[in-house]
């Protein structure tokens, strides 16, 4: 574990907590894409399949349970909780996210490190996570203004993988044989997709306005 990866995990945890805070306390999911949340639930479900078979550390298992539990509960809240569901912007959240799942699965079947069931699904989760934010970014452009909590959620979610990139650079230089092109390229694509969001998000800080 290095400072970049810890910062990345904490940023990811913070993003999930900010979203849970928004949904649980003010019972609102305005501006949040249910489709992105559904994709993230699939990402964690396919990435953490080894949670029961391989133990890395208490921290690792604990965080996996947190991400699994939070992503599925957010989807449940947005789908079935009456008050929260009412604030869900169904008409605007129309990105065909299932069209993202199949290409990622095909790509994982073609490009992976080992051709095993767990490894292919784990690789699939990497590819899917890279594009999972697209429905949210499309919704963002349609709903113009968003509230601060949603903006902070997206900022933290985009930042965590950026910190992971620093972690991979650090590990590449400090650990022999630490080379994982698939993880690195997927992580880079994922972070680059946030580029224009980061641009407007920082403008907001400079301009002191809401995220336009």
């Amino acid at each position: 574990m290095n400072i970049f990866r810890l910062a990345g995990d904490m940023t990811h945890l913070a993003s999930v907590l900010v979203l849970l805070l928004k949904i649980h306390t003010i019972k609102s999911c305005a501006g949040v894409s249910l489709r992105t949340q559904e994709l993230y639930a699939i990402v964690f479900a396919t990435r953490y399949l080894d949670i029961f078979t391989s133990f890395v550390s208490v921290y690792n298992t604990f965080m996996k349970l947190v991400f699994l539990g939070s992503s599925f509960s957010i989807v449940w809240y947005m789908r079935y909780h009456k008050a929260v569901h009412r604030t869900y912007d169904r008409e605007q959240d129309t990105f065909r996210h299932w069209f993202l799942v199949l290409p990622c699965l095909v790509l994982a079947l073609l490009i992976h490190e080992k051709f095993t069931f767990l490894e292919v699904l784990w690789t699939f989760s990497l590819y899917l996570e890279a594009v999972a934010i697209l429905p949210q970014l499309v919704l963002l452009q349609r709903t113009r203004n968003i509230d601060n909590l949603t903006g902070q959620y997206i900022f933290l979610l985009g930042g965590y993988r950026g910190l992971y990139i620093l972690n991979w650079i650090y590990r590449y230089f400090t650990e022999p044989h630490f080379v994982h092109w698939i993880t690195w390229i997927a992580g880079l694509v994922q972070t680059l997709l946030y580029a224009d969001f980061f641009y407007y998000y920082f403008l907001r800080f400079i301009g002191g306005r809401g995220v336009e």
């Binding site: 990866r5 995990d9 990811h12 080894d50 391989s54 890395v56 550390s57 690792n60 965080m63 996996k64 991400f67 490190e113 080992k114 490894e119 784990w122 992971y164 972690n167 650990e175 044989h177 630490f178 994982h180 993880t183």
Partner: peptide, 10 residues
Amino acid sequence: SENDVTKDEL
């Protein structure tokens, strides 16, 4: 194995 190294990340 070297691959297990990756799996120590979230």
